[in-house]
Design a protein around this nucleic acid. Structure first.
Lengths: 84, 84
DNA sequence: CTGTATTTGTTCGTATGTATT
DNA sequence: AAATACATACGAACAAATACA
């Protein structure tokens, strides 16, 4: 699933995979996404890389993190004002 | 006793020290090894490092952990069937 | 029965060092 | 030099189960 030697960095690959799960509704709003440890185990990467992936999702506004609690799926940006 | 800047990681140094105590019979089967807190105090390390050391001992089959109870010295692998 | 302390389990935050590309 | 990735190590917070006074 993950291509270590890839043209696109591992942390981005993971971020995209998780983003896909969110978009498909496999991960629901205000529900936790896999912890850093779980991401490490699932994708066989270092914590650093898992964290980086989560950071990307946060920057995209897809998730929010509660320190010492976990990272959760953000509420969907309500469809308002798509055009100007 | 512990060499922080060492060629061999602190968690391994601690694991080896405790392993030595087990092998020398200073820690007996089905008796608890020092708790994470005690390891932290004795070696002046973070809980993370103490836990990592215990995890190594567990992987080596030297100890087993009972959640919310402690970690105990494993029974010696009975000497039977050493040869074929 | 009721707290309090102990112990392991789990989470995220942060920093450093190393190696590779 | 910069980005990526891994390993190590410390910190902080909370949960849950157990043990005990």
């Amino acid at each position: 699933m993950i291509q270590p030697d890839a043209p696109i960095p591992v942390y981005l690959q993971i971020a995209n995979i998780v983003a896909g799960r969110i978009e498909r509704g496999e991960l629901l709003p205000n529900r936790p996404i896999p912890s850093e440890t779980q991401l490490r185990q699932e994708f066989g990467v270092a914590r650093d890389t898992a964290r980086h992936a989560v950071a990307v999702l946060r920057e995209r506004g897809l998730v929010f993190t509660v320190p010492q609690r976990g990272t959760y799926v953000a509420e969907k940006p309500t469809g308002r004002s798509m055009r100007s």
